[in-house]
């Protein structure tokens, strides 16, 4: 049989007093669809299902969700990778308020991103051409700038669950290091001063859920370690 059992987290604030799980049968015709394709099929059965999606190729970061217990992007997760016993359970990203169904309020996540001043700071007057950067210095940004802000990492991080208002979280810290590591950025000292409190960086306990779920294969834990090294070097 090619009928997949899909269990979906449902919540519509206008009609439901509490969230609940709803079961759907989806005919996959035996194909190894992506989870996002399955959602499209469910939406044809129930027009009211809400989820975010855009690029459908894993670069826009819209469709982060919890699939059979693990965060990831629905559009690049094939059923063969997550489905066990013909059953797929889909829930919103954990730890953030749910707006409707699989749509979460990303406000806190974005706030933490904005807090690390995610933009290049350089007050030296720019040359008439580009600022030069050696390939070696540019290589230091690899594994950092590729973040798509899908929030899979931060919402799988227990430290972020407990302190989403104070702990920057893996995604924000990865970007904090992306600018600390940029040879063109001049605000290193100010950036570090903004991070040395007990929460912003130091709530990371090295659980490494972030590394396990990142759909782009990035390593926020390593970046956090580098930030700690820089803080230490700066303060001792």
């Amino acid at each position: 049989m090619s009928t997949l059992q899909v269990s979906l987290y449902r919540y519509n604030p206008e009609t439901d007093s509490a969230p609940y799980m709803e079961e759907f049968q989806v005919d996959t015709q035996g194909r190894d669809l992506m989870v996002l394709d399955v959602l499209h099929l469910v939406k044809e059965q129930d027009n009211g299902l809400a989820y975010r999606r855009s690029c459908r190729e894993g670069v826009c970061g819209s469709d982060g969700m919890n699939m059979n217990g693990k965060n990831g992007l629905a559009c690049i997760t094939p059923l063969s990778e997550v489905v066990k016993n013909n059953k797929l359970t889909l829930r919103p990203l954990p730890g953030l308020p749910v707006i409707r169904d699989l749509v979460v309020d990303m406000g806190l996540f974005y706030k933490q991103y904005e807090r690390i001043q995610p933009y290049l700071q350089n007050d030296t007057p720019a040359p008439a051409i580009e600022r030069l950067q050696s390939p070696e210095d540019r290589d230091k940004l690899d594994g950092l700038y590729e973040c798509i802000l899908c929030a899979c990492c931060s919402t799988s991080c227990p430290s972020f669950w407990w302190n989403p208002d104070k702990f920057v979280g893996p995604a924000g810290l990865l970007q904090a290091y992306r600018f600390l590591a940029d040879s063109r950025d001049e605000a290193t000292r100010e950036r570090l001063e903004g991070l040395e409190d007990p929460f912003s960086v130091f709530r990371c306990r090295g659980i490494m859920n972030c590394v396990a779920v990142c759909p782009k294969g990035l390593n926020p834990t390593r970046a956090i370690g580098k930030i700690r090294e820089m803080l230490l070097a700066n303060a001792t």
């Binding site: 975010r52 670069v59 826009c60 819209s62 798509i148």
Partner: peptide, 11 residues
């Protein structure tokens, strides 16, 4: 209609 970094330029 989407958070800006979800726009198609990203692709």
């Amino acid at each position: 209609k989407v958070f800006p970094t979800r726009s198609h330029t990203v692709s």
